[in-house]
Structures are given as C-alpha cells and as structure tokens.
Amino acid sequence: MQQAIVECKNLTHYYGKRCIYENLNFEIPKGRILGLLGKNGTGKTTTINILNGYLQPRSGECLMFGESSANLSPETKQKVGLLIEGHVQYSFMNISEIEKFYSAFYPKWRKDAYYELMKLLKIDPKQKISRMSCGQRSQVALGLILAQDPELLILDDFSMGLDPGYRMLFVDYLSEYAKAENKTVFVTSHIIQDMERLIDDCLIMDYGRIVMQKPVSELLESFKRYRFTCEKPELLDNSNHIYNSVSIKGKTELYSLLSKNELEKLLSGNVKVTNSIQEESLSLEEAFIGLTGKY
C-alpha cells in the first residue's frame, strides 16, 4: 500500500439538523486518482471544503501530507493544486497577468505547461478572464494547476458548465499529466461518464453515507445488472446484497455485487424466478445509478 497523501478520519458534518454524513473515512494513496461521485447535495463540495480547511467538520479530521487540513502550513499549501467549483479565478486579471501572479508563489512553476494549453484557446494574452467563456476559463484554471506542478490536485466539479469538447480536453490533459507525473488527484463531478476515463478509484456517496469505495475496475468487474421475471418480486430485499430492485409487470431489474450463480442461489427459495437470469455489465454511470437509484 502506497503512503496516504490524504486521510479523512471519522468525518461527521451537519448543516443545522441535516446530516450530510457521519463517520466518513477514506484515504487517497500517492499516485492514485480518486473520484468522489454523488448526486447534488450529497456532500461532495462539503468534503472538498473540509479538505481544504474552509469548513470545520462537526467531528473527525482530515490530514493532508500528515497535516491537519484546518491549519495547513504554506509549504503544504504549495504542494496542493486547487480548482474551485465553477473554475473560479481572479477574473480581473488577463491570462498573462495571472500567470505572472501565480509564478511568484511556486518555485517549480512551469510556464510552458500553462502557455501550451493557452495556445489551444487561440486568444490574446491580454484578454481578461472575465470576458472568457466558461470553457476557456476552465482551461486557464487547469493550465495554472499544471504550471504549479503540485503533488496533490483537488478538483471540485471540474465539468460544471463545460461543453463536451472542453470536458474531453480537460479530462485528456489531466489524465495524461497525472499518470505521467505520478500525481495524486481528488476529483468530484456529477458527470460520471467523464470520470470513467479519468479515475482509478471511486467513492460513491448517497445522502448521509458512503455507498461504495472501490477501484473502478474492480467495481465494474463485480457490479452487475440482472434482469428476470419472477412471481413474487415484493419479497426481494434491497438490503441483502441487492441494490435498487424494480419490478414492472413481473419483469424485475436489480443490481448486485453477487455473481449470477450466487444470485440464483439467493433467489431460489422465495421469489420464484420463472426464466433464466440475464446478466449485464455496466458502465460507471450505470453502476452509479444502480448504487444510488434514479431519484
């Protein structure tokens, strides 16, 4: 097991009386790309805020490079690249000013990495960020992170407001960079199909809890959708290795980590399957829906 760059231990947070999560635990080992997946309002940005020290959890703690995230030293902040939701940057600067500004803070600054990405945008270096489109701003924010050359990248909902072309450009650049340079990445997004091409491990959250935490390959290998017809679908128990079973007019669909044989054994006694069970492999997006439900 690689050394953990980020460790979150027993995080519990509430907004007023609303529980966001209780006892959330996860680690991000060095060189891994972890995707935090969840529907809107499940606590993705809350987790990012706690991780960056912009929110004090009700209890528990987050460590980054072994330091409490509530009080990061300048040396640790230098090792962390942060992308804020909506690709927020200093919009009153133009693209060359912002590059100069940040270069003063980071000793390993890679001006070329930034300008290589800026070339793709084909915009004047004097153009203000406030006059750019959301897609262009996302590339500026990404370019700045790549130039900073941090050890850990934290990206909050990077796909927000981006068209498919910019999303793909962002994912391709980030994925290539992170893998080539052995960077650790913590990323959230609600567009799951982008994540499938990017992340190694996934942490899937639902309201108030973690539903699954696994390497993506392992999840897609083991998590399947099954379809069959049965006589007593009402006897299917969603808590017993079965996720989100839905039955319409005798046709049943459910998701499970069990193999087909294991599922057949489980269902043999009570629900009375009347045809052979069909097994289907899933994309990450389908697996996400299977784990968290459509609503």
């Binding site: 020290g53 300048p74 927020v88």
Partner: peptide
C-alpha cells in the same frame, strides 16, 4: 467584493503564505 463574489477568497487563502 471581488474576493467574496464566488468565494474567490478561497484562492487567496490557498496561496502558500500564512
């Protein structure tokens, strides 16, 4: 105001200084 709009102050506080 530019710092507080879109919580841009997070960027400032993330700079490697105390």
């Amino acid at each position: 105001v530019p710092e507080m709009v879109q919580k841009r102050i997070k960027l400032s506080l993330h700079l490697p200084l105390s």
